[in-house]
Design a protein around this nucleic acid. Structure first.
Ligand code: ZN
Ligand code: ZN
Ligand code: ZN
Ligand code: ZN
Lengths: 163, 163
DNA sequence: TCTTGTAATGTTATAATATATCATTCATAT
DNA sequence: ATATGAATGATATATTATAACATTACAAGA
């Protein structure tokens, strides 16, 4: 059985070079279109995240940045990360306080993740913003869900009325 | 329209005394049944969380504990919180690095939350572990979803095979 | 060209969240 | 009463994240 709202990218083998290049190209195109600056720093952080389908903490990223001489203090990493997250090139995994490159860069989506607690692989599944069915993706890939986190941020009725 | 997988508790008015007492009683009963120690400290932390349907950070909780002379160092709060979370009496809101009392203490559930960014109210919706539909609860309560976080932790196919 | 505004980056300091470790006390069962 | 494990106390430190201010890069308008 497969879901109509979820489609996985990960766990199974795939051509990661294509994956990586597609993401960079998508970011370039998007920044070009919206006059955003895809600076060397931001590009490098995205490249670091794209290396693997794993989540990296800000300080791990910072270490790698330092190695390539592109910045060494926390705000440098956090700023680049918030740019990438803000524009959808990367996502924050709240459970891990860590970041992953978006695996679906050319698709408008609300991200959903399956996180293996053993190998730490993070698979991004496609979904709509308020309806989720991970069970399809999970069973299709053989992922065994143990625990889920679902948190919707927004504005409640009474707060909306005030404005 | 209402969802078959989600039912809200919150935002709208409700008898909070009942809410509070029900949660304490449920915790007592559960601990009794499973021979868990519902110590004064753990009870106090749950009471603190039950005061309001808002998420409290560990250090805010710690301040309140200190006031009642029940502990003053971080591990005290974190231990009580992990006990409460482990047994389902409370949940961690990952997006906020904060904790809420469970609003559905007598129902087996995988928690889902709607968080108002203005008043910081946290509403818990009932859901199954791998399929969610917050849109029903959201529209029923007038909550406007802006962003969602969906993260499933588990074990991937290849890691499961190794074991 | 010059200036001036804005975005990005550099730098220092510190805040906020969370855990490791070891000592002590308490509950419970033999 | 005594041995056992669970819970708490206490100290130190790790990890994650941001505030605040200085500097540089770059482009639009004078
Ligand atoms: Zn994505
Ligand atoms: Zn795995
Ligand atoms: Zn709950
Ligand atoms: Zn509100």
């Amino acid at each position: 059985m497969t879901s109509k709202t979820s489609k996985s990218v990960g766990f199974e083998q795939h051509d990661h070079d294509v994956c990586l290049e597609k993401a960079i190209k998508a970011a370039e195109a998007y920044c070009d279109r919206f006059k955003l600056q895809f600076t060397p720093l931001r590009r490098k952080v995205l490249e670091i995240l794209l290396e693997e389908h794993r989540a990296l903490g800000a300080y791990a990223i910072l270490d790698l940045l330092r190695e390539s001489g592109l910045g060494s203090q926390p705000p440098v990493a956090y700023r680049a990360l918030s740019f990438l997250v803000e524009h959808g090139f990367a996502h924050k995994i709240e459970r891990l306080n860590a970041f992953v490159a978006c695996a679906l860069p050319d698709i408008l989506h609300s991200p959903a993740f399956m996180i293996c607690r053993k190998c730490e692989t993070v698979v991004e599944a496609q979904s709509s913003s308020s309806s989720f069915d991970l069970s399809g993706t999970a069973s299709a890939t053989g992922f065994k869900i143990e625990q889920t986190t679902l948190e919707a941020k927004g504005v409640c009725h009474s707060c909306a009325e005030m404005a």
